[in-house]
């Protein structure tokens, strides 16, 4: 398909989008009066830019860059099928897919269960430690239970990246001070 054919195909498609949205307004070429004059970053929008009048010439002078941009955007959020076509796999390939899928599910399940078990163990250890501290020294236990009402992680705390940073160690680092606003 040549570029000309492609562009003409797209043009036809955009015309259908236009005419679909402006079907009713095409019969009565009604242009609503502007409420305000908005100038948006150098682009002056006119009212009803997607509305076309039936019988108007479209080959030259009918389209503006703003209109084409809006039509392009409409094609991005339209209802047309975005998913790729269904895979056609042979029976052996389907079996392979199912085997790998089940194995991967099993791995994920084992990881999840081991994580939950570890977390549960940690929780039980916290409980046991608190109980023993309460028996040993009620004063220390009361101090340990006294925690601030609002807790925050330090502002320098980061989600780890998969690669090391460019600067491995910043020796001139100082603790950040956030502006306190009342």
């Amino acid at each position: 398909m040549s570029l000309h054919q492609l562009s003409s195909m797209f043009w036809r498609r955009s015309q259908t989008i236009i005419s679909r949205t402006a079907f009713q307004s095409a019969a009565v070429s009604r242009i609503p009066q502007p409420l305000h004059n908005f100038e948006v970053s150098g682009v002056k929008f006119t009212h009803g830019s997607l509305e076309v009048t039936r019988g108007k010439r479209t080959k030259s002078g009918g389209s503006s860059p703003q209109k084409i941009r809006l039509v392009n955007m409409l094609s991005l959020i339209g209802r047309v099928r975005k998913a790729p076509y269904r895979l056609k796999l042979s029976y052996e390939d389907l079996l392979r897919h199912r085997t790998i899928h089940r194995a991967w599910q099993l791995v994920k399940r084992q990881e999840r269960e081991s994580r939950n078990t570890e977390l549960m163990t940690q929780y039980q250890k916290i409980q046991v430690a608190c109980d023993e501290l309460e028996k040993a020294s009620p004063e220390l236990f009361a101090q340990a239970m006294d925690k601030p009402k609002s807790l925050r992680f330090p502002p320098e705390y980061r989600i780890p990246t998969e690669t090391p940073p460019n600067v491995s160690w910043d020796s001139s680092w100082k603790k950040a001070t956030l502006p306190q606003v009342k």
Partner: peptide, 26 residues
Amino acid sequence: HRAVTEHAERNIPSTVMIQQITGVKP
């Protein structure tokens, strides 16, 4: 707000913007 004061078409760039930022169909 311009979808109210000007034309409902002003929604289109906002909708596409959200879709591009989040990767989810709005």
